[in-house]
Amino acid sequence: MATIARRPAPQPRAHPARPSGARNRSRGARLLGALCGSRGIFWQGVAAAVALGASAVVSLLVVPADAAQGDVQRLMYVHVPAAWTAYLSFAVVAFASAAYLRTGRVHWDRLAVAAAEAGVLFTGLTIALGSLWGRPIWGAWWTWDPRLTTTLVLLLVYAGYLAVRGLPDNPDRGARWSAVVGLVGFLDVPVVHLSVVWWRGLHQPATVLRPGTPTMAGSMLAALLLAVLAFTLLWAYLVAARMRTERAAQRTRRELLSAPVRRGVQPVAPVADLVATAPTPQGAGSHG
């Protein structure tokens, strides 16, 4: 009993004044922290805006139009980067989900949810831009091409990821649920792709536009790389900003949690008191 009586009543671990785990953070966590600080987010936003502006000028005015497709082909400079960020989000969701389940550290969950929401945005954008591009080129808004189908499944997985988060009354459990969905989706999507490739293979060769073929002019490739860079910066900015709001939301929850403790009566009776007021415990022998 003495060990207990000596120990002062612990502060609730969630006390907002003391960010938990600040002492022994890994290098990755520190880097994430720097990128998600308000200054880090600001500069990411500036970088993204500059790169997007430059990319818009280059892809619309500098690069020549495609010989075969005309100006429509300029959609490539947004469609391909959008697809890249969509798949980047997906990989990050899977990695962060695994890391969260493994370590239980909330910053991984914040990263996963931020990447998932960015993923919804960019996957939707990819599909919409692809449809716009496909209509004049293929003559159809949609074709059951492996890449298109896989991207659509990706969107459904993200929908599931975000849908399960808020279901349980325990936010940690919601985070674990969505992490499981993110991981299962990560395992699932390659199989979807393979299945559709095989499926198509038995009917007709897949009609895929291959924007990255070596036949592309050097200036087009450079413009594409610039666009990819710009979208990646935009993605990083959105993810970092979203992580920041998620952290604020978590802090607010903790704030609410500690409110009754501050407001209420003397919170905890020391265990020693409980023991002291109890009558002498009867030994096991006297029972029964």
Partner: peptide, 22 residues
Amino acid sequence: AARTREGVLPLLVLPAAIPLLV
């Protein structure tokens, strides 16, 4: 565990089962 949201089961099962279906 989330009985109030009936639609969540198909939302999770169907996308995961797409490769099986194909």
